[in-house]
Amino acid sequence: MDIELMYQENILDHYKNPRNLGKIENATVHHHEKNPLCGDELDMFLVIDKNSKITEVKINPKGCAISVASASMLSEELKGKGIDDVEKMTKENILKTLGIPISPVRLKCALLSLDTLKNSALIYGRYVKK
């Protein structure tokens, strides 16, 4: 595998300057996910309106380039999406957004963002929406 293909400029750009970095004090859902194998962590803050649409997103990622870039890129897509859209999102969507070859051992890094988002949606459905 060509390593430059994996660490493309846009991946490194998202890693060094993650979009939507920060937190939201009154988030509808704040969820923290950790990948115990690598120690990658992600905090995700979502403001969700009455129609179950995401209106605001902030993230606080800690980890490798792949996991941080993945969270950053995903955060850019979320505004305006409904929770039902989130529920339909798959691993393939994330990998397509990343647009780089991901080896099986790095899959967990790439998918931490999706896991965090999916679990945020679950929490919303179970405890917030009622």
Partner: peptide, 23 residues
Amino acid sequence: KGVHAHDVSQILDSEGVAIRAGH
């Protein structure tokens, strides 16, 4: 500095060097 251990390991691997990264 500024590079996660996983990424270090991944790039070293591309040079044939096997190390461990993590806790």
